[in-house]
Nucleic acid binder design. Structure first.
Lengths: 225, 225
DNA sequence: GGACATCTTTACAAAATCTTTATAACTGCA
DNA sequence: TGCAGTTATAAAGATTTTGTAAAGATGTCC
């Protein structure tokens, strides 16, 4: 199973270190940024599963970063702050923060709030297995089966298929798919999609030349059924 | 839009009263229960949009109530508690609580956390569907059905039909349609429209020679009904 | 360091879609 | 009826989009 990835945006090295140690020992992969700008770049080039954002950054206010992130990033953002005033908290929550903790925080509580947020964002109607015709996807174990036989997928292939399955029936645009899987800054790389849809079809379709699961919506995107 | 409904489960009347006043003045509908048992009954008979649950109840511990609720209730549950110990918080969050506030709480913060939770739980709701006789258009999934059977449309055909459907009954001029679908500089290309209305009629009309949905308004434009 | 899996990029063929042209059909009116 | 203006349909041509194979690049694990 792949580790969930967490991006820490905080200018204090000792806080970053503390978080890193705690998160890594709880089986998260950690990426760090010391400025808001760096955080925005990192999240755009490779979207993490959750962002821990310090409000008091040197270059830009955390509120600005939050707003910029929320223009496209829709996974959890937990705010960490020394500020314990209500205005800050309310404004952060209303601007799309998932949660708000004041420093010093209790590590156990932070971890629990991270677990809770990640679980909710993976939000699959509390059924961890998506079934769709002859395809079965176990979102917890990250295993895909076709006619009860396990299929070997690379990490990107799996992420793409899981995203499709979570949105069964809906047309997902190229832009959206690229943004979710590769990151905000990859929105124009539609050729990636063609290649990966191609390999996915070879693995999950009965007849890849006449796909029954991943349907092309020409000019728009793809649809999973 | 209907008011969101909030169920308060708390044994202290003065807290309930305080919450009630604050919530109602923020346009929520409020239902109250003074015991865990009553709360379970009320939520089962008429599920609210969000539950505020006090941990320290006289009959059953709030943790038990939480677990029982989570067996079937998947909208937000926010815990209110005088307990500020980490064990309680972690256990509540891991048992499916959406958030955890310690009393005394700040009203503005509670309201912001409620807004945040409600917003998040709502954006997984189903998509709006425009229905029009035997035609059904799902604007989010980008799917068109006739007599419950999916119809394959090209991107331009779909855009045109969606535009028609959003303006059901109104006459849309050639100019307007061309401007919306093709762009400002195509306003004189009425032949495009004829071609695409033609293919659309073939796909969605019972008898394309006697269209019932896309009606020609000679010299002006088209009307969808 | 080298074998291996995976991702990225390139090139080209195939398919789908859009645009244009030609022609037929309809409508209202003298 | 015949005419002018508008609309409908079919089909050829042009363009865009998609699919596939394969080579190059990158990273990982021993």
């Amino acid at each position: 199973m792949n580790k969930a990835e967490i991006l820490i945006i905080d200018d204090e090295p000792q806080i970053r270190k503390l978080l890193q140690i705690n998160l890594e020992s709880n089986d998260y992969k950690v990426v760090q940024a010391s400025t808001g700008k760096e955080g925005l770049m990192l999240s755009a080039s490779h979207p993490p599963d959750l962002i821990l954002l310090d409000i008091g950054l040197p270059d830009k206010s955390g509120h600005e970063i939050l707003q910029e992130l929320r223009e496209w990033y829709n996974r959890p953002i937990i705010i960490l702050s020394v500020q314990d005033n209500e205005t800050d908290i309310v404004s952060a929550l209303d601007n799309g923060a998932t949660d708000y903790l004041t420093k010093p925080f209790r590590t156990g509580e932070l971890l629990a709030r991270i677990r809770s947020a990640v679980k909710r964002s993976q939000n699959t109607e509390n059924s961890p297995i998506i079934s769709c015709g002859d395809i079965e996807i176990d979102l917890v174990a990250r295993i895909v089966k076709r006619n009860n036989e396990a299929i070997k997928l690379t990490s990107t292939e799996y992420n793409l298929l899981a995203l499709f399955a979570k949105n069964e029936g809906k047309v997902l645009t190229h832009q959206y798919l690229l943004k979710e899987i590769w990151g905000y800054s990859y929105q124009t790389e539609t050729q990636y999609l063609r290649v990966f849809v191609g390999t996915l079809r070879k693995k999950i379709e009965e007849n890849p030349n006449n796909p029954q699961h991943i349907i092309t919506e020409s000019g728009v995107g793809y649809r999973f059924q």
